[in-house]
Amino acid sequence: MSMSILSKLRCITVDVTGTLLAYKGELGDYYCMAAKAVGLPCPDYKRMHEGFKAAYTDMAKQYPCFGHAAKMPNIVWWRSCVRDSFIRAGYEYDEEIFEKVFKRIYSSFGSSAPYTLFPDSQPFLRWARKEGLIVGIVSNAEHRYQDVILPALGIYQGSEWDFGVFSGVVGVEKPNPRIYEIALERAGNIAPQETLHIGDSMRKDYIPAKSIGMHAMLLDRFKTSDGENWRKSGAVVLPDLVAARDWLSKEEKVASALV
């Protein structure tokens, strides 16, 4: 008997960054624009990038999930992270100037400006929902992804997705498998074996989803060396969501395609 993989699923969960959308330009572009707007010289891109990486890692360790457990407001978390990024890059501004620069950076990253939606994202999500699947978004992101950024890019709750699990909102982040358990609960307590998670990270998407019994697939949109290693380890790795749709729709003679 032949069955499509799709017919065995009731729910699909999808990661956001690298899966549905990508960053546009470089971090330095946005920090430079904000500095120039208040009459400051453009900070060095490389130093800014390194500074941000270190500052973000530290903040995420100290106050995980964008300060969720500490009940830290989102803007306070980011203010501290951005200030530390500048300091590490060798730039110390006085309070008034910093506040002006920060507000510009914060509003840029809270808008759709720094992101670009992959052209196959919206059609894929709509197709999955039309096929009767419940579609969820699972992301290490704060509430602005849910409330502002995704809608501004044309990805709306109710037309492209049914529920979202965002780390800054629920207080759990990938690779903690608990975030996937929360997704199954939100989907209506759907069994893990009836759910497929699609992401772009072996560590944050594939391994934790599989660990609770979900099916998982990885996208390698930029043909990385990681993609090759993922394939060798036995993961289903596809180039984009068009290929994912084809893979889900094809008839399988064997029932082991998703095992």
Rank of each mutant, 00 (worst) to 15 (best):
N140D: 15
T116P: 00
R104K: 14
A113Q: 11
F124W: 06
E142V: 00
K100T: 04
R104Y: 06
F102T: 04
L117H: 03
T116V: 14
K100Y: 03
V138P: 04
P119I: 02
R129T: 01
R129K: 12
R144P: 00
A113S: 09
K130N: 12
V148C: 11
S107E: 15
T116L: 10
F109L: 03
W127D: 04
V148W: 13
L125W: 10
I105C: 09
K103N: 15
I105Q: 05
V101M: 04
R144D: 02
S121H: 03
L133H: 10
H143I: 11
K103E: 15
S139Q: 07
G110W: 01
G136D: 06
D147C: 08
R129L: 06
D120T: 10
V101H: 07
S108N: 13
S111Q: 03
A113I: 14
K103H: 15
K103A: 15
F109W: 14
R129V: 01
V135G: 07
I137A: 07
Y115C: 00
D147T: 15
K100V: 02
T116F: 08
Y145R: 00
F124D: 04
P119W: 09
P114M: 10
S107H: 12
T116C: 05
K103Y: 14
F118C: 05
F102P: 06
A128D: 09
L117A: 08
I134N: 09
L125N: 06
V148L: 15
V148M: 13
A141T: 06
W127Q: 03
P119N: 06
F124E: 04
I134S: 13
V135C: 08
L117S: 00
A141S: 13
Y106A: 05
H143R: 12
G110S: 14
H143F: 11
V138G: 02
Q122M: 11
S121I: 03
L117G: 00
G136P: 08
R104Q: 14
I137G: 05
L133D: 04
W127A: 09
L125F: 04
G110R: 12
A113D: 09
A128G: 02
R126S: 13
R144N: 11
S112W: 00
S108F: 15
N140K: 03
Q146M: 14
E142M: 01
I105W: 09
T116S: 12
I137W: 10
P123I: 04
G132Y: 02
V148G: 01
Q146P: 04
G132S: 01
Q122L: 12
Q122E: 14
A113E: 14
V148E: 15
S111H: 01
T116W: 05
L117K: 04
V101D: 03
V135F: 06
K103F: 13
P119V: 03
F124C: 07
N140M: 02
W127S: 05
L125E: 01
E142S: 05
Y145W: 12
T116Q: 14
F124A: 13
G110I: 00
I134G: 03
S139Y: 11
L117Y: 06
R126N: 12
D147M: 13
Q146D: 14
Y145P: 01
R104F: 01
S108W: 13
L125P: 09
D120H: 06
D120A: 05
S112F: 01
D120I: 09
K130C: 01
